[in-house]
Computed example of a mutant assay.
Amino acid sequence: MLTLGLLRKAHRTPLRFDTLGLRNVTARELRLRQNVHLSGLRFESTTPKPKPSTEAVSQLPPPKFAFPERICVYHAGTGRITFLACLKISTLFIFVFFGFVVTPAYYEKEGLSPTVLRTTLSAIVPLVFVAYTTSPFVSFIHMRIPPFARQSEDMLRRFVRTLPPTTELDVTSMSFIAKPRASKVKLEDLYRVNRRLGIVNLARDTKAENAARRWYMFRAVGNFSAQPSSNTVTRASWVWESIMNTIKTRQV
């Protein structure tokens, strides 16, 4: 009986030890898992949230407007512009041919004679006449409008009805060699005139602008020919008529 009791105790003791060890291992694993979980939460909470990139913001569609920032209010017509450009270039060729080819040949042959005088006039007169009559010719005019006036035609009409004097106009004329010349003027600088047999109908004072230019630079354009009857703009053609009515009071 004593032997059987000792054997029973010997078998029970390892079983109790193993049970306690198993409980200790399980508790350690649970603590380790909790620590890992908490550290993960702490890492997620301290990680900064990504901000939206500027590229994504720049890819947003721009607001739509009914009119561009620079609206064309006057256009003289493609045919008229092309004809005058060809006329200017042809006049230059005539001047070069009669002035540097024909006139020197007659002068060497006849000396100072009526023929030399005629060929000289044939070179100079067309050049001066074309330059005098076509220099104020305006090809097209653009007007800068604020964003609120670009939203619809009704808003544009409200803006044009009360045009501020500081409204900027980009007037494009034609130079001596048929090259476009852009003149940035303000509405308050223009006034109505009747010069050069009615060819010039708009003018501005260019004394201050010419004083700031170098001696080798072209003089600023002060006379413009932009007749309302020659306007070929189809969209919002009434804008130029309103502009002419606005500057009508500045006639001198």
Rank of each mutant, 00 (worst) to 15 (best):
H11Y: 06
S175K: 06
K248H: 13
I243Y: 01
V252I: 15
R150V: 08
S90P: 07
P52A: 00
D18H: 11
V73N: 08
H142D: 11
R213A: 14
S183F: 01
A123R: 00
L87R: 12
F17T: 11
M174Y: 00
V239K: 06
T115Y: 04
V160P: 05
P50L: 08
P14Q: 12
E153C: 14
G99H: 04
E108D: 10
L202Q: 04
A208V: 08
T134A: 12
F95Y: 15
R235P: 06
R28Y: 03
L4K: 11
E168G: 04
V128Q: 14
N201V: 05
T133M: 06
G40C: 07
R150G: 12
I199K: 03
A10R: 08
R144K: 12
G99P: 02
G77L: 08
S183N: 13
R196I: 02
N24G: 02
G222Y: 03
R150K: 14
V116N: 04
T46D: 05
R219C: 05
A27I: 02
P52V: 11
H37S: 12
A105Y: 10
A85L: 08
Q227F: 01
L2I: 14
T82R: 08
G111L: 02
F224S: 03
F93W: 15
M143E: 03
K9R: 07
K184S: 15
A85D: 13
R8F: 08
T172I: 14
T249P: 06
L15D: 01
Y107E: 04
S113H: 10
R8A: 14
T82H: 12
D189H: 10
H75K: 05
N231I: 11
F43W: 11
V57P: 00
